[in-house]
Design a protein around this nucleic acid. Structure first.
Lengths: 346, 346
DNA sequence: CTGAAAGCGCTAACAA
DNA sequence: TTGTTAGCGCTTTCAG
C-alpha cells in the first residue's frame, strides 16, 4: 500500500497571482492588508481567490508570521463514567467564542508519563499554539506559575496569584451563596446547613465561605457537612447524617446540584417534603435539575460570558501584548425554583 | 503597547547541531529516523536535545513534511443549557486515543454564515489538519459525501453509504434493544411499548427498529410512542399518553435515559411502582441514572472502544493510505438494574 | 553513516 | 500601489 500518499499540490499564491495577473505579494496583501490595494485590484483578486478556492497554507503562514491562530485547552481529565456535566457547555461556549475571533481550539493532554508542565513546555517549544486557556485552576496551580515563568500568554477560569498576570475570569460564588442564604433567611429559616464535597477545591471552598459569611450576616445557626467524595454512596451517607441528627436543619444549601440529588434522595426516604419540610438550594444548574420534583433552586454559571471574557482577554495578550490589570468577577445567576419553598414558608 | 511581541527566537536545529558538534541533518535524523544513527551519536544528540529543550517547530515541520499530526473534530452544536451528556465522555475518549497515537484534536465549527461543507473545505484547502473525525452522522450526511468527493481522510461514528469509504464505527443499537426486549419477555411481559424522541435520527431509528424486531421475535404486543422533542414537558406528555391509555403496557423500553426520566416522573405521579408495576429499560447509561430509584436498566455505549477504533481507522488512512473494507459494529453493553424487575416478575 | 544543498508556501522589508 | 528579494525552520534529496 502506498505509504503516505504524495501530497496533492493545492492552490498556492503563485497560481492565484498568475491567473489574476499580479504578483504574489499582491495576493498576500489582498488577504492581510486589503486597504493597501486599489479597490478594483482587490475585487479582481478576490474573485480569482474565490474561483480557485485558494486558502493560504496554514503551516507556511504560521512559519512565516509566527502566529498560529490556535488556542490550546488542556482539558482536565474526566471520568468517562461520570463526566463533568458542565464540560460540554463550557467547551461549547469556548469554541463559539474563539471561532468568532478566528481562532480554533486544540485539545491537549499530557502524554503518558508526562507532567502537566512538560506538556505545556512542549507546546510552547514546538510553537504549536498562541496561548493557553486553563480551567479548573487550583490554588497555587503549578501551571500558572509555569506559564508565568515562561512569559507565555494564558487566561484562566479561576484565580491567579497576586504576582501573576491577572488574566483570569471567575464567578463570584461566595456572593451567590450569600444571596442564597439571604433568601433562606427571608423565608424564616434559622437552622441551615451547607453540604460540601471534595474539600480543597477552590470553588467549593468559595461556596462554603459564602455560606459561612451569609450565616453570620443573617444571624443564623449554620453548620457545614462534607461528603468525602463525589460518589452517590458517600453523598447519601453525608446527607443522612445531616438530616437525621438532632436539631435537623430546615434548609440546606448544597455546594453543587450533584450533592442536592443526595438531599432529594434522603429526604424522600425520611418522609420529608422538599419545599415545605425542607428548603433546598444548590449550585450549577445542571440539566438534570429540570427533572427534579420539586424543581431545584440553584445558581447558574454564566458559561457564555465566562468563555467570551476569557477568549477576549487571552487574545488581547496574544495580539496586542496587553495584560489585564485585574481579574474579572462575574455574578452567578440565581435561579429560584420551588425547592426553596414559598416566601413565607415558616 | 507593543503590537505583536517580537517572536522570541526558540531553539532551532542549528543550535542543537552546533552544540552537539554534528550537522543539522543528523539532528533531524535523530528525531525522525533514529536507526540511521550510530548509537553513540544518537545518545549524544539526544542528550543535547534534552538539555536545550529542543522541539522541532511544528509549522516548519508541517510545511516541509505535509503532515500536521492534527485531527479535526467538527463538534456538533450543543445547547449550553442542555448539553449532550455523552459529549464529555466521547471527547475524553477521543482525546486519549489520539494522544496515544501522537495526534491532537482540533475542535472546529463553521463560522457564522458558513456551511458545514465550506468549513471542511477551508480546513482542507488551508492544509490545517490530516483528517476528520465525524460524529452524529445522519443518513446521507452531506459531510460524508463532501469528504468522499474531496478524497480526504475521515472516520465516522455512525454509518457511511455503500459507495463511500467504510471508515466507520457504530454501535449495534438494534441488537442491544432486541436483547433488552428478550429480557423483558423472559420476565413475562406481553404488552410493551417503545418511547422515542426526535424521530429521524439514525440511532433513534435503529433503536426503534430493534424494538420492533424484538417484539416480533418474541410474539409480544408492542407499540411505539414518540415525543415530539427533547424537552421534559414534551417527554412527560408523551409518557402520560402512554401510561394512561387503555391496555397500559407493563414494560417500557425508552430510546434514551433522558426519556426514561419522564417515565419515572409520570409513573410516580400515577402511583405505579417501577420494577413491579412497570418494567423500564433505556439506553445511554448517563451518570444521572445512578441517582434513580430504582436504578435504571440501560445500555452503555463503549465510548472508549469506539474512540480507539475510530482513531485507529482514521490514522490507517492518513498514514498508510489503507481504507477499511468494512465498517466496525460494536455491541452495546447491557447494564441490568432493578428497574427491570426480578426475573419472574409477572 | 554523515554532510551539503534545495525548497516547502508564505509574508516582511524594501525597492520601484 | 505594486513588484522583488530574502528567509522563517525544517526535511528530503543526493553526494560523499
Amino acid at each position: 500500500m502506498a505509504a503516505r500518499r504524495p501530497r496533492e499540490r493545492g492552490v498556492t499564491v503563485e497560481d492565484v497571482a498568475r491567473v489574476a495577473g499580479v504578483s504574489r505579494q499582491t495576493i498576500s496583501n489582498a488577504l492581510n492588508a486589503p486597504h493597501r490595494l486599489k479597490p478594483e485590484t482587490l475585487e479582481r483578486v478576490s474573485a480569482v481567490i474565490e474561483e480557485l478556492g485558494y486558502r493560504p497554507d496554514q503551516s507556511a503562514r504560521s512559519l512565516r508570521s509566527g502566529t498560529r491562530r490556535i488556542i490550546a485547552y488542556p482539558a482536565p481529565v474526566d471520568d468517562p463514567a461520570n463526566p463533568n456535566p458542565l464540560m460540554g457547555g463550557f467547551l461549547e461556549a469556548v469554541v463559539a467564542a474563539s471561532g468568532e475571533a478566528g481562532y480554533r481550539v486544540l485539545l491537549v493532554r499530557p502524554r503518558p508519563g508526562q507532567s502537566q508542565e512538560q506538556a505545556l513546555d512542549e507546546l510552547i517549544a514546538a510553537r504549536t499554539v498562541d496561548g493557553f486557556l486553563l480551567s479548573d485552576v487550583l490554588r497555587d496551580d503549578p501551571r500558572l506559575a509555569h506559564l508565568t515563568g515562561a512569559g507565555f500568554p494564558f487566561a484562566a477560569f479561576g484565580r491567579t496569584g497576586p504576582d501573576q498576570p491577572q488574566s483570569w475570569v471567575d464567578v463570584d460564588s461566595a456572593q451567590a451563596v450569600i444571596d442564597m442564604v439571604g433568601l433562606v433567611a427571608a423565608r424564616g429559616h434559622r437552622r441551615v446547613a451547607f453540604l460540601a464535597s471534595s474539600s480543597g477545591l477552590p470553588w467549593m471552598d468559595d461556596r462554603r465561605d459564602g455560606f459561612l459569611a451569609g450565616v453570620r450576616r443573617h444571624g443564623l445557626a449554620g453548620q457545614v457537612y462534607s461528603a468525602p467524595g463525589d460518589d452517590p454512596g458517600e453523598i447519601v451517607k453525608a446527607t443522612r447524617a445531616l438530616l437525621t441528627g438532632r436539631d435537623r436543619p430546615t434548609a440546606i444549601v448544597a455546594g453543587g446540584d450533584w450533592l442536592a440529588l443526595g438531599v432529594y434522595t434522603v429526604a424522600r426516604a425520611e418522609g420529608l417534603e422538599i419545599g415545605t419540610d425542607l428548603a433546598v438550594a444548590a449550585f450549577d444548574d445542571l440539566p438534570v435539575t429540570a427533572w427534579l420534583q420539586p424543581a431545584l433552586t440553584t445558581v447558574r454559571l454564566p458559561l457564555d460570558r465566562i468563555a467570551k471574557a476569557l477568549i477576549s482577554r487571552l487574545l488581547q495578550i496574544v495580539e496586542d501584548g496587553v495584560t489585564p490589570r485585574a481579574g474579572l468577577v462575574l455574578p452567578g445567576e440565581p435561579v429560584i425554583r420551588p425547592s426553596l419553598g414559598p416566601p413565607d414558608a415558616l
